[in-house]
Design a protein around this nucleic acid. Structure first.
Lengths: 207, 207, 207, 207
DNA sequence: CATGAATGAGCTTTCATTCAT
DNA sequence: TATGAATGAAAGCTCATTCAT
C-alpha cells in the first residue's frame, strides 16, 4: 500500500489503528467510543489523543492511506500494459481490471466499509474522499476507454457512465458476498466469471 | 406509501417524524441527538419519548413503513402483467421494472440513505431489514426470470446473481446522481436509457 | 440587588449558583470543577449544563447581576443629597460615600473576589466589566467633584486620579481586613475613621 | 534583581521561565498547561519536570526571587540614609520611597500580576507569600515611621494602617496605568507627583 | 541532560431517558 | 397529553506527571 509520509508508528500506535479499524468496521465510527478503542488496543485513552489529536484524526489516519491507493500507481502500468496493440478484446480488459481491483478491494474491505459509512452523509468527508482520487490514473483509464471505443469494442457512452457501471457492479458483488451474506460459501471462480461476462456484454456495442 | 397499521399520528408526532427523517438523512442516526430532533420539530424532548418510547423506536417507526413496501403489492400485479404471453423481449421487462422501481427509490431516497447507513454494520438492523422483504414478491420475480430463461431471453445464471446485477446497477445510478454529485444537472432520460441498455445487454444470453 | 431580567431560578438552580459562588470564592473559578459544584449543590452535573449551558455561562450568571449594581441607582440619590448647598465640608462627603460603598462592597465581597480574579487577566471579561459601569452615575460623581472643587474644598486633580485614590484606598482596606488577614479582630469603627481621615486630608487642597 | 541562591539556569531552563512568566501573566497560572509552556519555550515537556519537578515548582521558581526582594536589602540602606538628621520632611521620605519602589514594581509587573492572582484565593500560596516578607526590613520601615512620628511629621496611626495606605495607593496606581488602561498615554511625571502629594498630605498630622 | 511516548485521573459537556407538574 | 427540569452514565478530550530511551 502506498503511504506518502511513512512516519513510523510505535507499536502502541499501530495497535490503536488496528483496534479502531476493527471496531469501526463492526460497529461504525459513531458508535465506537475512544474508551473502547483504548481498551481493545490495551493502551491508555490519553495515548490515542497524544498522537491522533482527535477521534476524527484517528479516522483520517486509517482512511488516508487507502484513499491514496484506490487507484494505485501499479494500475497505471497495468493499463499501459493492456494498451499494447495485441490485446484480444474488451473481455480481456474487463477481466484483468476486475480481478486486480477485486483483490485489492477485498483485502481492504474493512476500511472500505468505514469509508462507505462516512460517504453516505453530507459531511466534509465526502469531498475529502472524492478529491483524493488521483486524476492522472483516471485519465489513464479514460484513455483506455477511448482506445477501445475507437476500435468499436466499447459502447460510445460518457466516461462516467462506464465508470459507474463497472464500479457499481463490483461493489454490489462485494456487498452481497462479504457484507450481506458472509456466511454463504460462494463459488468465487464461477461468480467472478459471471461478473466479468455481465459487464463485458453490457458494455459491448450492439451491431 | 403503504402503512400496515395506519395509526393516526398527531400533528406533533408527524412533525417529529419529519424532523427526524431530515436530520437522520443529513447527519446519520448516531450523530443526531433527540434534543436536536425536538428542537427542529418544535416539540418538547419528553414528547418524543411519550410516543416513540426510545430513539430506536423512532428510527423503526420511520423505517418500518418503507420495509413493508420495498416490493410493494403493486409490483406483484405488475409482474403478473409482464407474465402475459405477448411481451416482446427482455428489454421491455427491464425497462418497466427499472422505471417503476427507480421512481420508487428516488421518492424514498432519504429513508433509503438511513437504511443503508444502518445496513452497513453488523447490528440487529441487518436481519430486520432482510427479513422484511416479502417472500411472495421475490418468488413472483424469480418466476418471471424463469419464464424469460425458458424462452432463452435471459442468461442461465443463479437468481441471486441476476437480482444483484439489476439492483447494484440501479443503486449505483442513484448514488452517483443523488448522493455523490447531486449538484450536476443530469440528462435523466438519456441516462435511464443507457441504464436499461447496459442491464439488458448484460443479461441477454450470447448465441 | 438590581436584576434586570428577574427570570425565576428553580430551587436546584439557585442551589447551583450558591454552591458555585462559594467554591469560586474559595478556590477560584479555574480550580473549581463542575463536578464539585454539582456535589456541593446536591444536584446532578447534567442539571448545571441544562440551565447554564457552560461553566462560563454559570460564571456570567453569577457576575452579571453584580455588574448591574456596582453603582446602584440609590447612589445617584445619595450623591444628589450631598449636593444640597448646606454640606459642611469634604469630609462629610467622603465619609458618607465610604460608609455607604464599603457596606455594599463588604456585602458582596465574595463576588468581588471572583470578579477581581477574572479582571487580572487579559481576557474578554475585562471589557465586559468595565463597560458595565453605568456612565450616568459616574457623571453624577464627577459633578460632585467639580462642585467641591469650585468651593476650593477638593484638589484640582483629574477626575480619574481622584476616583483612583478613593477606590484603591477602599479596596486596600477590604483586602487587608477580609482577604489577607480575616482572622484578626479589627476595631472597624476606628479603622474606618482613619480611612476617611486619610482620604480627606489627601484630597484637601493645601493653602 | 536579588537571587539568594544564584543557581545557574541553563539556556533551556531560562527559556522555560520566560515562557511560563509570559503565559501565566496573560492567561493565569491555572489556565496555562505545561504542554503550552513547553511549546512556547521550544523545549520538551519532560525537560520542564526534570528541573522544576512540578508545575507549582515552576511557579515558585518564578515568584521566589520576587518575594525575596519586595523589601530588598538596599531599602534598608536607603532607610538608614533617610534617618540622618538632615532630612527635610515626610514628603522627601515618601517621594524617595515611592519612586524607588514604583520602578521596582513596574519592572516586575508581570510577576506581580501572577502573584496577585494566587494571593486572592485561600490556598497555601497566601501564607507562603506573607511569610516571605523579611521581618528585618519591615522593622527598619517601622523604625522609620516611629522616628517621623516622634518628630510629629507622621500621623500617630498603627503601622499596618500606614503600610496599607502607602501600598494600596501605589498598587492602585499600577493597576490603573498598566493593567486596566495600558493603552492610555499617561503623563507619568505629573501622575507620580500627585501620587506623592496624596499620600504625604494624607499621612501628615493635622495641627 | 533531553526527549516525547505513555499514563490514568479528571475535565467539561452531551446523551437518552424519566417523571413531577 | 405535553412539558421541560432533572438525571447519571458516558462521551471526547486535557491534564500534570513518569520513564525508557
Amino acid at each position: 500500500m502506498i503511504n506518502e509520509k511513512p512516519e513510523k508508528l510505535t507499536f502502541k500506535q499501530q495497535s490503536v489503528v488496528t483496534a479502531a479499524l476493527k471496531l469501526f468496521t463492526v460497529k461504525g465510527y459513531a458508535n465506537t467510543s475512544t474508551k473502547e478503542i483504548a481498551l481493545t488496543a490495551k493502551v491508555s485513552e490519553g495515548s490515542i489523543f497524544r498522537h491522533f489529536h482527535s477521534k476524527e484524526g484517528l479516522l483520517l489516519e486509517i482512511i488516508n492511506p487507502l484513499l491514496n491507493s484506490i487507484f494505485p500507481a501499479e494500475l497505471y502500468e497495468f493499463s499501459q500494459m493492456t494498451l499494447v496493440p495485441d490485446y484480444k478484446d474488451l473481455k480481456t480488459f474487463i477481466s484483468r481490471f476486475i480481478n486486480e481491483r477485486l483483490d485489492y478491494f477485498q483485502t481492504n474491505l474493512e476500511t472500505f466499509r468505514i469509508l462507505l459509512g462516512e460517504l453516505i452523509y453530507a459531511n466534509n468527508m465526502r469531498d475529502k474522499i472524492l478529491q483524493s482520487i488521483p486524476q492522472d490514473v483516471i485519465s489513464a483509464m479514460t484513455k483506455q476507454f477511448h482506445d477501445l471505443q475507437n476500435k468499436h469494442l466499447l459502447v460510445e457512452w460518457p466516461d462516467y457512465d462506464i465508470f459507474r457501471f463497472i464500479f457499481s457492479t463490483m461493489i454490489g458483488y462485494l456487498a452481497q458476498h462479504f457484507i450481506l451474506f458472509p456466511e454463504i460459501h460462494w463459488n468465487e471462480t464461477a461468480e467472478k466469471e459471471r461478473l466479468v461476462d455481465f459487464i463485458t456484454q453490457g458494455l459491448t456495442p450492439v451491431k
